[in-house]
């Protein structure tokens, strides 16, 4: 499982870098989305071992957590990261849309107004 997930993370990163190197704004954003997915999976891999079926809930009688419980912290981290990237991607998509309206182009090379002397 770890191996498969590692390969998936690598593929997502590779795809993200490829897309981000394109000149199209849409592909750039798609690359950012892939990148955030890759990072989320990477954090998932960094947890205390991959286990299934045992959430980290406290036993109501003994007050102890099962020794085989999954790492809850990475889940919290990923949830936070997902929410943040959701907000940011929404913002950047609407920004790209407005930029496309103003520039009438999807090409980053046409967006050099602020760089020119």
């Amino acid at each position: 499982m770890t191996l498969i997930l590692s390969l998936v993370v690598g593929t997502l990163f590779a795809g993200a870098v490829y897309l981000m190197l394109r000149r199209s704004v849409v592909k750039l954003i798609l690359g950012l989305i892939l990148l955030s997915h890759g990072v989320n999976l990477l954090i998932f891999l960094m947890g205390d071992g991959l286990r299934r079926g045992e959430p980290a809930f406290v036993d109501s009688v003994t007050g102890a957590v099962s020794a085989n419980a999954a790492d809850p912290l990475i889940q919290a981290l990923i949830l936070t990261a997902i929410v943040i990237s959701f907000g940011l991607i929404t913002f950047i998509m609407s920004l790209a849309y407005r930029a496309n309206q103003a520039v009438q182009s999807d090409d980053l090379d046409d967006m050099t107004l602020t760089d020119k002397l």
Binding site: L32, L35, L95, A99, V103, M111
Partner: peptide, 27 residues
């Protein structure tokens, strides 16, 4: 809009590498 797009994208890439670093250091 043009400047903002570049600002947003490059800062997002910076944040993402921060997140990668935080994930790795947790591992």
């Amino acid at each position: 809009l043009e400047g903002g797009l570049k600002y947003v994208v490059l800062n997002l890439i910076g944040s993402t590498s921060f997140l990668i670093g935080a994930g790795l250091i947790y591992g």
